[in-house]
Design a protein around this nucleic acid. Structure first.
Lengths: 117, 117
DNA sequence: GACAGCGTGTACTAGTTAGTATACAGTACA
DNA sequence: TGTACTGTATACTAACTAGTACACGCTGTC
């Protein structure tokens, strides 16, 4: 479960090589949280933060918010809301796709995106 | 937000017309919760119960668990896990579909189910 | 040698979640 | 008229979430 913290720390340190403001304190200040809290999050001493803080962190670190949320064991609330609006439809679709290989799901995503289906 | 409680109560009373064990006490006992708690849930005096209890309630009332969870403002943890495993893929797919009409999503569900795509 | 910035240790907390336990008044019915 | 069942009011709670506030010791540098 330290996956999340390790990832945040390594990504922050990577960015820091080019921009010294990517210190624990610098990032924490921009996010509006305490540096000691970010430090604990990165070391996995506490659970990952709230969705809002994770989304801010994703923007700060320039990574995909859905991926960072996933590392934190969460799913974006807008995706959840889409499912809740049509639970039978989305429930069946996701259960059908969940065990299919990536390339099959990707093909579906592309077909829907390109509108040729 | 009383949507959930109202639905549970009406469905339980419907079943009760054919089977008197569908009292607050009878259902609560089968679910392993206190009758006073189920009563409060049905009247919307407290927030909807946990996922586990809702799933049990759905089985008891013979309704779709995803639908009942949706009424409670929740999404099944197995759907969430499927998304967390491949957050970019599912994130993009759901965001593409979320504003499409039911019939379009349904067509997709059918195509995937029938495997002819 | 003081000042700024660094990461982190310690102590604390308001609010939420998901309930339990017990008691009480009303109804059915034998 | 007592027994059994009904729904509900009241009071309480352990665990969890998502943090804050402050202090400490270390390093660089002006």
């Amino acid at each position: 479960m330290t996956q999340f913290g390790e990832y945040v720390r390594s990504r922050r340190e990577e960015l820091r090589r080019a921009d010294t403001t990517f210190s624990v304190r610098g990032v924490a200040r921009r996010l509006g949280i305490q540096p000691s809290y970010l430090s604990k999050v990165e070391r996995g001493e506490v659970a990952p933060p709230s969705e809002g803080t994770i989304v801010g962190l994703a923007r700060e670190l320039d990574v995909d918010a859905d991926v960072l949320l996933a590392l934190a064991g969460k799913v974006s609330s807008d995706l959840q809301e889409a499912i809740r609006r049509r639970p039978e439809l989305f429930g069946e679709l996701i259960r059908q796709l969940k065990d299919m290989p990536d390339h099959a799901v990707l093909r579906l995503v592309r077909e829907v995106r390109d509108g040729d289906w």
